[in-house]
Simulated scan of single mutants.
Amino acid sequence: MPTALITGASGGIGAAFSAELAKRQHNLILVARSADKLQQLAAKLQQELKVQVEVIVQDLSAPGAGTAVFDTVVKKGWTVDLLVNNAGFGDYGVFVVSEALEEDRPLAKQLTMVQLNIVALVELSHLFLQGMRQRKAGSIINVSSIAAFQPMPYLSMYAATKAFVLSFSEALWAENKDLGIRVLCLCPGPTESDFFAVAEFPKAMASSSGQKLVPATEVVRDALKALDKNESNVVTGGIPNQIIANMPRLMPRELVVKSIEKVFRTKEE
């Protein structure tokens, strides 16, 4: 029975991956910082789907957290066949504004985002990919976003980190595809999760965006279909998200980013 390690497994897309992979008879290693949520999910999946579920409580935004997770897996003697790098978060707002407004995003939060969205993902990919290359088998799913395909004013750091994930993942796909190793970059659009709350989106903007939130279960099923086909990336959520992802190829980049800025600007700004 294969084993999947899923980061950010306590909710949203991570929890959906956990449930779907358990249905497909994968043993699981669930990683997140919320011990209670992980334990509850682990108990539920073990009872209902009769799979083995291990829990690693770890804040992946801490330096060296990826190595700590890997060391735990090695110490326990587990072999990871599928790595799902899902942990990450966004942050809405102007990157820097005048001191008088005090509305710019805290630098510490932006650096934490880089640590979680990029550094931990790279660290885990590097460490677990070594064993996959030795076995000439294994898969990695790195969760990015449709924000990866263009600059995003007011989500500037988030979009930049997800652009890194897309580029990095596609390069790994090309380097490893002839070894029997699959690497997929998952690029969902707005999904049913805590993303908007964590990113501190204005409530009026989140409720009036008009874009339907896609169930996390649907995103996961589309991702696993793409993985089975050994695709390098997949944009989920239907035609609207396909248009968003391909828009920068068809229009001047300055026009694209100006249009996005108008959409995401709050009335106060």
Rank of each mutant, 00 (worst) to 15 (best):
R221W: 09
P202T: 12
S208Q: 12
V74N: 02
N241W: 01
A197I: 03
V198P: 04
I29N: 02
F168H: 10
N117E: 02
V84K: 12
A163M: 00
F89A: 10
Q46V: 01
F89W: 03
E268C: 05
R133D: 03
A159Y: 09
K136F: 03
S167L: 05
M132W: 04
A197H: 05
G77C: 14
H26C: 04
V73E: 00
G11Y: 04
A62S: 13
K162I: 02
L213R: 14
T217I: 06
S145W: 09
E103T: 14
P248T: 03
P153E: 10
I260R: 13
K50Q: 13
D178T: 15
A147D: 09
R135N: 13
E54N: 14
S125L: 06
S193T: 12
V234E: 08
A4Q: 12
T266K: 13
G180M: 08
L186G: 08
N246Y: 12
P106T: 08
V69M: 07
D178F: 01
N117K: 01
L101S: 15
M1Y: 11
P106E: 08
A204D: 12
D81G: 14
S34H: 15
K76Y: 02
V143N: 06
K267Y: 11
L172E: 05
R221H: 15
F264G: 06
E192R: 02
G66T: 05
V53W: 09
H126R: 15
Y154L: 10
A42V: 06
E103D: 12
L127V: 04
I243H: 00
T72Y: 11
S10V: 11
S167C: 05
Q47C: 03
S10F: 07
N142Y: 05
V119W: 04
Q58F: 02
G237S: 00
I244Y: 01
E231L: 05
